[in-house]
């Protein structure tokens, strides 16, 4: 159980919630959240958007019953958290290029911030694509060296990846697949996958994805995979 510190809409249908939490949390990891008894039945997987000084932040889009209920939580109310879960992004050395689409930007902010902390001299470039309204952009502008914005277009149209840059992408599957396609083979590309989840801890086999090495669980072995592991190229 954790206490909600703040929970506000930052854009149409997009909420930012901060809760009190102590623990080791890696960028790319997620939590299973619930703030209800048995209806809806399952907890909701939501990525870590930021973590600092015992404050854990989620950025989420209201799409159905669960996220709608989360969006109505007021400060001081309780939310049940299970996690952190999943592998998270690997520690990145060298230059970083991040490509986020829509709510897929959620896990990327903590990644960029963390990267900056550990690589003061590294270069970090960010591409953010939105269908109609942009959000969260200023946060990225503070943490990254360069932010490229696209609204209503196709983000990969302007994507230029430098030699040696590590690419990390999260967003709609079609976007991640096209990122995987346009980035040269010499660059390492990490994708953060989604799957319907029941347990979030590797017990139900509901989130399986096919990989080069056979089936893997998105919740436990992922959600972060290399592009060639998951046949994105």
């Amino acid at each position: 159980m954790a206490v909600v510190l703040s929970n506000e809409f930052v854009s149409r249908g997009i909420c930012r919630m901060t809760v009190a939490f102590k623990g080791d949390v890696l960028p790319g990891q997620f939590f299973m959240l619930r703030a209800w008894d048995k209806d809806p039945l399952l907890s909701r997987p939501i990525s870590v958007h930021d973590y600092e000084d015992g404050k854990l932040t989620f950025l989420y889009q209201v799409v159905g019953k669960g996220t709608e209920m989360l969006s109505r939580l007021t400060p001081q109310s309780d939310v049940t958290l299970q996690g952190p879960l999943g592998n998270g992004f690997p520690r990145i050395t060298g230059d970083l290029c991040v490509v986020g689409g829509g709510i897929g930007i959620a896990p990327l902010y903590y990644l960029v911030k963390n990267y900056r902390k550990h690589n003061p001299d590294g270069k970090c470039r960010v591409y953010l694509g939105f269908r109609d309204v942009a959000y969260g952009v200023e946060d990225f502008e503070q943490a990254a060296d360069e932010v490229n914005l696209d609204i209503g277009g196709i983000i990969t149209d302007q994507l230029q990846v430098a030699s040696g840059e590590v690419v990390v992408t999260c967003g709609p599957e079609v976007m991640m697949k096209s990122v995987a396609k346009v980035v040269p083979a010499e660059n390492r590309v990490y994708v953060s996958l989604e799957a319907h989840m029941a347990c979030g801890i590797g017990a139900c086999l509901g989130c399986t994805c096919a990989t080069k090495y056979g089936n893997r669980k998105v919740c436990q072995d992922g959600p972060v995979f290399l592009r060639d592991e998951v046949f994105y190229v």
Binding site: K38, D39, P40, L41, L42, H196, M197, A198, C204, L205, G206, C207, T208, A210, G214, N215
Partner: peptide, 23 residues
Amino acid sequence: KPGNSGIRLWETPAGLMNSIGLE
């Protein structure tokens, strides 16, 4: 057994549908 392809979990009111396929 690799189990079934496609979506394997679907939530329903007070229930869960699964199609794991004995992975």
